[in-house]
Simulated assay, not measured.
Amino acid sequence: MNYQAASDYILHRLRTQLSPSLSYHGVHHTLDVLQTAQALAEAEGITDEASLILLQTAACFHDAGFLTTYEGHEEQGCLLVREVLPGFGYLPEQLEMICSLIMATQIPQSPQTHLERILCDADLDYLGRDDFAPIADSLFQELRTRGSVTDTPVWNRIQVKFLENHRYWTPTAIAWRQAGKEQQLAALRTLVEAETN
């Protein structure tokens, strides 16, 4: 597996070919997920090099489907994985593992393996971070551009429901982010209450 060449390839495509309207799902999000997945894997005791490479590759490709579609981007990402990664020395069983990792990030998340739990937690790490507000706003802008969300009060209610239904899967993410996520949820509930009164 030539991970360096594979990651260079997809990150270049994400930088140059993603729609500018993807204010949340841009290359910055992919890089954030990659960095977080690496940190979580280390904290979770993942030391097997092949497993780490598969996790990192999946992080790089997890939103690559946005190059061609918005709905069902995970499936499109898997098509891309199967198309291009053999050229970087990835074997069929490695492609399937990468696709399982990508599909686990689909909302609602349903990770089955330790690596899938790590990638799912990396993908939504921001929910419990100090930079939650600007990142959430970038998603609001993206969805508003697509006509999926109309205004801030509606968006705040969507976020409350999303945070209520979300869970972190790894002990590390729970330790790092759960308290922060609960603070965000409490603040959003206060906003929604004020908007409905």
Rank of each mutant, 00 (worst) to 15 (best):
Q106N: 07
A173N: 04
S19P: 09
G180T: 09
E182V: 00
Y24G: 03
R82E: 15
T170Y: 08
H25L: 05
S100M: 07
R146H: 09
T196L: 07
Y126M: 00
Q178V: 02
L11S: 13
T113E: 05
A5E: 10
Y9E: 12
A173D: 07
R117A: 13
E164V: 05
I107G: 00
L119P: 10
D8S: 15
F132W: 06
F162Q: 04
R146F: 06
L11A: 07
P111I: 02
L31G: 01
R177P: 01
A133C: 01
A37M: 14
I118C: 05
A104Y: 03
Q35A: 13
S51E: 15
E42T: 13
L124H: 06
L91R: 15
E193M: 06
G87Y: 04
D48Q: 09
I135N: 05
H114L: 14
D48I: 09
A122C: 08
E75R: 10
L40Q: 03
A194R: 02
Q159D: 03
F162V: 02
D131N: 12
L11E: 15
E75A: 15
L52Q: 10
E83V: 00
L95G: 12
V160Y: 03
Q94N: 10
T172S: 06
E71R: 11
E96P: 08
C120P: 01
L143W: 15
A186D: 11
T105G: 03
D48T: 01
D48K: 08
P171V: 09
L119V: 08
T105M: 05
R129I: 00
S23T: 15
C78G: 11
V160L: 04
A179F: 06
A122P: 02
Q94D: 14
E75Y: 04
Y126L: 05
S51G: 07
V27E: 10
D123N: 07
T36F: 08
G180H: 05
A58D: 09
F132Y: 15
A58E: 08
V27N: 02
T36A: 09
D137L: 12
S7R: 13
C78F: 12
S100K: 10
Q38K: 11
K161S: 10
N156H: 13
T36W: 10
L115I: 06
Y3S: 13
E195L: 00
P86F: 04
V27K: 11
L85V: 11
C99S: 12
E93R: 14
R189M: 08
T150I: 14
Q76A: 14
N197P: 01
A58T: 08
D151H: 14
P111N: 04
N156E: 10
A5Q: 13
K181P: 00
E116A: 09
